[in-house]
Every structure is written in structure tokens, then in C-alpha cells.
Nucleic acid binder design. Structure first.
Length: 511
RNA sequence: GCUCCGGUAGUAUAGCCCGGUCAAGUAUUCCGGCCUUUCGAGCCGGAGACGCGGGUUCAAAUCCCGCCCGGAGCACCA
């Protein structure tokens, strides 16, 4: 059923969630195959999410296959870095977009050589030894360069010299023949492989083994067919690359896969440029790949943004060709919807200030639900006992609530009792006990504020999205939290617990 | 400059192919109310958009033309 009627299956989903538009000509293929093909020269970020989620999601919907392919064929300008191979794998795993297969292009150089030779032999490609400037002039004039029409034997000979290291950088390049009259000069006889000084620019994985490296259109074009990719989903900056590659497909007698070119995805205020991210981290401007100011997956993960929220967002945006500039609020809204029913609540008092309440005649036991809608999850319990001599109780409250704590005002300490403020000083507030019932507070529309008993507390800092730190005190019960727990600090926001040893450290997600 | 895409509310998206049911739907945002021992969630109500100008037509967000604006490509990068 699933194999024969993927559409029917997909349609069912439409009703419950929103749906991606159907893939073009999906019915023509026995199995849908998509691929995500990053250059391991940076960690992944929200800008890559569109490619990943769309590819993975479509493969999933159609019961197809999702391939991860590292495109690491430029050891010079876009030099791959070893650590990123694994980081990218981790990011995908975290995003719950695990590939069914993985390839690394630097392992496939012999395959590319084989096809280069084949094309050379058939006269569909040639080794061009022209000065780049000369070639440029010719091609702009729609004229062949002096190499183009040389016999294949000559090119084969040049080719062998090329891979043996007989040419220096820039001295020879393999070109795929296209149409010299093509309206777009960029399409005309595009370069397929070039010489790299292997000693000077060793590849992090294969070292100085190869002098000749394929360019994007060659390696990618071959691989898409060789790996059985049926649907290419990539950014629209690759639109002309499709046109270029189609010529090579013609030479090889292959059929070009279906291609979807979506627009760029940006998020307001986020730095999504790989080079800027790498530079900022290397120079120490950012604390790491997971600096909260970054929109890397690592950073989002650290802040408690869930993969589900990211996926939903991307699916919602869909594969349109126009660019989108998302606002963080959008992402937060998805995340909040996922988090709110799931996560427990705790009190965190930012910028604590001491509150002493006098006139307490008995001990109170505050039972705070871990989740307001799910009492079955349990409680945090605090016994508030007044001192024997003057019946006073000491609590932490937040300076942020100072406006509600003006002299004479009535305030309710959540789940505890109501007080009237008597005196406000720089570092302390004095108040007196008023009454216990919640209804009393409602009647006078007293503001509700949270609190932490002095003595039943733990120092806590929350790293905010702009990398500033919110200092404060969390309630004692939060000591039981574990790293990666996501909770809501009531009236403060959702946070992900990062660590706890003596001090609680959390990262802020959003309100 | 050349080639190619695209422009629906603050943001994102549906509708455009096969004109009317679109006085434009949805989510978020913002405002108001209800509910609620969170300024969260939920519920109810409200605000807010078809880039501009022509044309075709009984009828245009949808078709045609021009303009304007935005983006991408024009590497021996991916």
C-alpha cells in the first residue's frame, strides 16, 4: 500500500497537518530519491534548513531515500575542514533528518576521472590550455578557442598529462562542450575539472593525492545521476547550473532529474553567512558554533529550539522560488506551541531583591504545580516558616517586579499569600501579611508575582539570545534538573538547562 | 550591463495554471474581552494585504502589455 500509493498516504496527512505540494512527476519514478549536499566548510545553520527539511520530508512522504553527500572538491578556495563532517552529521541527526545513505565526493575522484576521460574520448569535452583571459574573449564572441576543435587524441594526451601533474594551476582545465551561441555566456563550455597544487593545498581527507579536482557542476551532475537522485531540491542560485549540466547529461545520454529551486531563506537579524560565522568563531568574537547570537543549528539546539519547530516552519514556508525573510517570532511561535504543554514550570527570580514579610502567624506550605494543566506531574513544595520572635519571612523577588511593589500596593505571591508593601529600599522591601485566599487577590486585581524562599535557592544565570547574562536565583527544586532539560521559568520565558554544578546555567529560548 | 526568477497584511503562507463561490482563507503579530494562582497556554472578538498603471472581459489577486521594486546567476566556488 505504502509503496504503490504514496500519494494517498501523503494526502491523508494533509488533513491533520499542512502539506507540501506534490513533487513534480513523482509517479514517473519507482522510488523518490533526494539529496542534501553540503560543503563541509562550516556548521549547518537555519539557511540550510530549507534544503535539508524539504529533501528529507519529501523522501519521507514518498517513502523514498534521502542521501547525504559531502561536496568537498575544493581544497583551495572552499577548503573542507575535518571537524565539520561530523558536526554536519550530528546536526542532521539532531534535526531528525538522518540520511539513508552517505557519500563523500573526495572518495569518488576516480569515478569523476573515468567520466572525464569518457567525455574527452567522445569529443564532448576538451582540455583547454588557454589563458583564462583569452578564453573569455573568445567565448564572449561566441567563438571556439584554439583548443576546442583539436582531435580527441590530443585532448586525451593532455588529460593524462594533467592528472600526472604535468600542468600547474591555471594551465589546463577540462571543459564540457555546450552551445557556443547560448544566450547566457556562463553556460558556454563550462569548466569541469581543474588543476590544484596538491602540495600547497592538500585536502584534509585525501591529502596531496590528486592534482586534478572536479568542479561543482561536473561532480554534482555526475553524482546526481549515478546515485539515482530523482528530485534535486536546492537554492535558486543553482538555476543556471541546471542549464549547464543538462548539456553534460545530453552527452552521456542521461535524463536530468526533476529540479526544484527554492528561494533564499533568511531570518531577520541573524548572520547566515558561512564565512562570517567561521571568521567570528575563529577570531573569538563568538563563544563557539553554538553562540546564542548565531542561527546555527548548534546554537538553536543550545537554546531549546526544537527540531520539530524548525521542520514545521520550513514545511509551512514550502518550496517557493521567492526569497523569504522570516522573523524570529515565527520560529518562536512554533516552538512555544510544542514546548508549552510538555515542559515543567519553575521559578527564577531575575535580579533578586530581598522581601521581608511580617505578621506571619503560622507556617505555610506552598505546593506549586510542575505544570498548571497537569497536576498529575507533581509539585514543588516549600514550607514557609516565620521566625519565632517577630513572625517574619524572607523571600527573593525580582527587581523586574518593582513597579508592582510600590508602597501601599497589594500583591499576591503566587500560591502563597497576599501582602501589602510597606517600605521599598534599594536592596530590600518590607511588607506585611494581608491574607491567604487567592480570591482576595483576584477581588482587588492584585498582580501575581513569583518568588523564591531565601535559603531554598540556587544561583542561576540565563544566557540570553544576545549573549548577555541574566543573573538571578532559581528555586531549590530546579537543582534536580538535568542538562538538556527544557523548562519554563514562569513569567520569564522558556529556557534550556545547560549545566548545573553549584550554579544553574540555562539558555534562553523565548518568551 | 546581460540572462533568469519573483512581488498577497509587520512576518510567513493559501488562492493564480483551469477568471466569478475572494467585499481574499490560515498561522503568527498587535489590540480588546473571557478564562486561568505565569506577563505562558486556551477561548472569543477586532486590526491588518492582492507593488503601480493600462488593457481584455458582464466579471481579474487570477489572463495580456508597460512600469516600478526585490532577488539570483554571469568563478579554473559550492
Amino acid at each position: 500500500m505504502e509503496e504503490n500509493w504514496p500519494e494517498a498516504l501523503a494526502r491523508e496527512k494533509v488533513e491533520e497537518e499542512k502539506r507540501l505540494p506534490p513533487l513534480p512527476n513523482a509517479g514517473n519514478y519507482p522510488q523518490i530519491v533526494t539529496r542534501f549536499s553540503p560543503n563541509p566548510d562550516c556548521v549547518l545553520h537555519l539557511g540550510s534548513a530549507r534544503a535539508i527539511v524539504l529533501c528529507h520530508e519529501y523522501a519521507h512522504i514518498y517513502n523514498g531515500k534521502f542521501i547525504l553527500r559531502f561536496e568537498d572538491t575544493d581544497p583551495k578556495l572552499k577548503k573542507p575542514v575535518l571537524e565539520f563532517y561530523d558536526r554536519i552529521r550530528e546536526d542532521l541527526a539532531w534535526l531528525e533528518c538522518k540520511p539513508d545513505e552517505e557519500y563523500i565526493q573526495s572518495d569518488r575522484i576516480p569515478i569523476y576521472y573515468e567520466y572525464a576521460e569518457k567525455l574527452l574520448k567522445k569529443g564532448n569535452a576538451y582540455v583547454c590550455t588557454c589563458q583564462p583571459q583569452n578564453f573569455r574573449e573568445k567565448i564572449l564572441a561566441k567563438k571556439p578557442c584554439q583548443c576546442r576543435n583539436l582531435p580527441p587524441e590530443e585532448h586525451l594526451e593532455r588529460w593524462h598529462r594533467m592528472i600526472m601533474g604535468g600542468y600547474k594551476e591555471g594551465e589546463a582545465v577540462v571543459r564540457i562542450k555546450t552551445d557556443l551561441a547560448h544566450p547566457n555566456p556562463a553556460v558556454r563550455d563550462w569548466p569541469a575539472l581543474r588543476v590544484i597544487d596538491a602540495e600547497k593545498f592538500p585536502h584534509p581527507r585525501v591529502g596531496s593525492k590528486y592534482h586534478v579536482w572536479p568542479l561543482y557542476n561536473f561532480a554534482c551532475g555526475l553524482d546526481d545521476h549515478l546515485m539515482g537522485v530523482t528530485h534535486i531540491i536546492r537554492g535558486k542560485e543553482h538555476l543556471t547550473n541546471m542549464v549547464r549540466q543538462e548539456y553534460m547529461y545530453q552527452h552521456l545520454g542521461w535524463r536530468y532529474p526533476e529540479a526544484i529551486h527554492y528561494g533564499r531563506l533568511k531570518i531577520k537579524g541573524a548572520y547566515l553567512s558561512k564565512s562570517k560565522i567561521v571568521q567570528g568563531v575563529r577570531e573569538g568574537f563568538y563563544m563557539g558554533w553554538d553562540d546564542p547570537r548565531l542561527a546555527t543549528f548548534a546554537a538553536l539546539r543550545k537554546r531549546g529550539i526544537t527540531p520539530a519547530a524548525i521542520k514545521k516552519l520550513i514545511v509551512d514556508v514550502g518550496p517557493k522560488t521567492s526569497d523569504v525573510v522570516l522573523s524570529w517570532e515565527n520560529l518562536y511561535a512554533y516552538n512555544r506551541k510544542i514546548l508549552d504543554p510538555k515542559v515543567n514550570r519553575y521559578f527564577f527570580v531575575q535580579n533578586p531583591i530581598q522581601l521581608s514579610v511580617r505578621g506571619i502567624l503560622k507556617a505555610f506550605t506552598a505546593r506549586l504545580r510542575l505544570h498548571p494543566e497537569h497536576p498529575e506531574r507533581g509539585f514543588r513544595e516549600y514550607v514557609i516558616k516565620p521566625t519565632e520572635k517577630d513572625g517574619t519571612v524572607l523571600l527573593w523577588v525580582s527587581k523586574m517586579d518593582l513597579k508592582a511593589l510600590a508602597v501601599g500596593k497589594i500583591v499576591r505571591l503566587m500560591e502563597l499569600f497576599n501582602i501589602r508593601v510597606d517600605k521599598v529600599e534599594a536592596y530590600s522591601i518590607e511588607a506585611s501579611f494581608l491574607s491567604e485566599p487567592y480570591e482576595d487577590a483576584r477581588k482587588v486585581e492584585a498582580p501575581l508575582i513569583h518568588w523564591v524562599p531565601i535559603g531554598a535557592d540556587v544561583p542561576c544565570q540565563v544566557i540570553m539570545p544576545n549573549a548577555t547574562i541574566a543573573e538571578g536565583i532559581a528555586e531549590k527544586a530546579s537543582r534536580d534538573l538535568k542538562p538538556n532539560d527544557i523548562v519554563q521559568f514562569e513569567r520569564f520565558g522558556f529556557v534550556r538547562i545547560d549545566g548545573i554544578n553549584g550554579k544553574l546555567v540555562a539558555y534562553y529560548a523565548h518568551k
